[in-house]
Amino acid sequence: MRYIDLYFKLVAAGIRAQLQYRFAFFMRIVGMLTSYAGTAITMWVMLYQFQELGTWNFYEMLFLFAIAVLSWGFCIILFFHFRSLDTYILNGTFDRFLVRPINPFFHFMAMKFDVASFGQFIFSIFIFIWVSVELHIHWTIANVLFLLAAVIGGVLIQGGLLVIISAFAFWTTKSEQFYWVVMYPARNLTNYPLVIYPKMVQWFTAFVVPFGFVNYFPASVILGKETPYFPENIGYFSPLVGIVFFIIAYYIWMLGLSRYKSTGS
């Protein structure tokens, strides 16, 4: 309970700090909207001649993409700053999290709360409405609840991966680069239906780094698409996979921290 109270206080401070730079804040939202619109346009151009990508049409792909964007939006708010843990370690500012009487993971997590994800929310909600009309999706309460649960699962999976990537900094003093090498391509990969990839890759994104549960499996459930090689409705496991993956990530981070404490770099 104490931590929840403290989290809100720390987070409120983080938001106030961010709002000191209003113009930067605004431009970041514009930038994010531009870049997501760019990906959507690329998808449209791609399907202009071909109509379908592995049985997925343009609107279905947009829907798939929008789920990823929405959960990534929450992920940015909560965990995006984890990727730059290496900078904190290199310039010594990480030590301040270790001279305080609270859990360093919690302290580090609460340090930033990036509210610039408005861009993601505006974009994904717009797409959801547009696609729902085009594809005549019937939104029932169960559907909406499932989508929310899947988004939470997606936040935990992507957040978990960010946490694991940041933990690399404890061993290698690098994390930002790992983000650009591992996570950035992986996120791009999942913007498209996993069914188009080799079986090995699909298997990997289902059971090793479970990105399939962020958007592909849940979207397949809602849109009634087939997921070859995988049981039908595997998407229902998204929230559970998210929780398990995040717990594993947390322990990896704590393991890295104890390693940091023995090497100091």
Binding site: F23, A24, M27, R28, G31, T34, G38
Partner: peptide
């Protein structure tokens, strides 16, 4: 002042 949009 801010390059966010330019980059994208």
């Amino acid at each position: 002042v801010e390059t966010g949009g330019v980059e994208d």
